[in-house]
């Protein structure tokens, strides 16, 4: 059983076709990196998995659940918002610009959803949160507001915040692109540890060395389609597609 299955997905913004027949699967425990030039549709496909974008056609399954209305014989069964919410709880997302809640402390950022969405008691949520926050190395910052943290620290809090909902799949959209170069490493290290712990991850990234080292599989996207996919070794050392070769030449 795949963790994620994407089948023939199309997405238009008005007349602009942003995703064209995208299909791929991600297995449990796999780390998949999506690379490709700007505007290729990397963010759009990732956001579709979390329903932040609504796809135009095609199908997305998270584990066994179709993330859309389904046909039952001839009847269309509407996916209720409660069902969708419970499917989406299986995915956590980390954004390029962190999107921490500025009016909440680090601890409150991490406990907000466990308390108000999952219904955990404050005590339970805080115990869980403190454990996760110390795993991302910020135990001494739990009472700070996000504005007092560096970008790298903020992104680590954002990772902790997503992990606190205990997702089975983590989605990362260029998690280090907004960081000063000297802060990239601390975030990538947290992600590496997460990958080693067996988390299923999809990472959109421009950090080629991270992709090469951590990914089990690379998807190369170009102009709304997946042009090439394969093991890092194949993609980086022996790319088959002309476009992949050109892209890698331009970034490496």
């Amino acid at each position: 059983m795949s963790m994620i299955k994407v089948e023939n997905v199309y997405k238009n913004f008005g007349t602009l076709e942003v995703l064209k027949d995208v299909s791929f699967t991600v297995e449990a425990g796999e780390v998949v990196c999506i690379i490709g030039p700007s505007g290729a549709g990397k963010s759009t496909i990732l956001r579709s998995l979390n329903h932040l974008e609504k796809i135009t056609s095609g199908k997305i399954w998270i584990e066994n659940d179709l993330l859309d209305d389904r046909k039952d014989g001839v009847n269309l069964v509407k996916l209720s918002s409660a069902e969708r919410a419970s499917i989406l709880l299986k995915t956590g997302m980390v954004f390029q610009r962190f999107n921490l809640f500025p009016h909440k402390t680090v601890l409150e950022n991490v406990t907000l959803s466990p308390i108000h969405v999952k219904g955990l008691t404050k005590d339970k949520a805080e115990t869980l949160a403190k454990d996760i926050i110390s795993r991302v190395g910020l135990a001494d910052k739990i009472n700070e507001y996000p504005s007092r943290l560096s970008g790298g620290q903020q992104q680590r809090v954002a990772i902790a915040r997503a992990l606190a909902m205990e997702p089975e799949i983590m989605l990362f959209d260029e998690p280090t692109s907004a960081l000063d170069p000297e802060l990239v490493g601390e975030v990538l290290n947290v992600m590496k540890k997460l990958a080693e712990s067996g988390m299923t991850m999809i990472v959109v990234t421009h950090e080629m060395s991270f992709a090469r080292e951590v990914a089990d599989r690379i998807l190369f996207m170009f102009d709304g389609s997946i042009c090439e996919e394969g093991k890092p070794d194949e993609i980086f050392n022996n790319p088959k597609n002309e476009r992949t070769r050109n892209f890698l030449k331009s970034v490496l």
Binding site: N50, H51, L52, S81, A85, L88, L89, T91, G92, M93, F95, R97, N99, L100, F101, P102, H103, L112, S113, H116, V117, K118, A158, R161, A162, M165
Partner: peptide
């Protein structure tokens, strides 16, 4: 991005408004 992060954390539109957007 605040609404998106709230939705990604499983909050309904109403909860996101009440807990995240309106307080800010």
């Amino acid at each position: 991005g605040q609404l998106e992060a709230s939705r990604a954390l499983g909050m309904s539109y109403g909860k996101a408004m009440r807990l995240v957007i309106i307080p800010q």
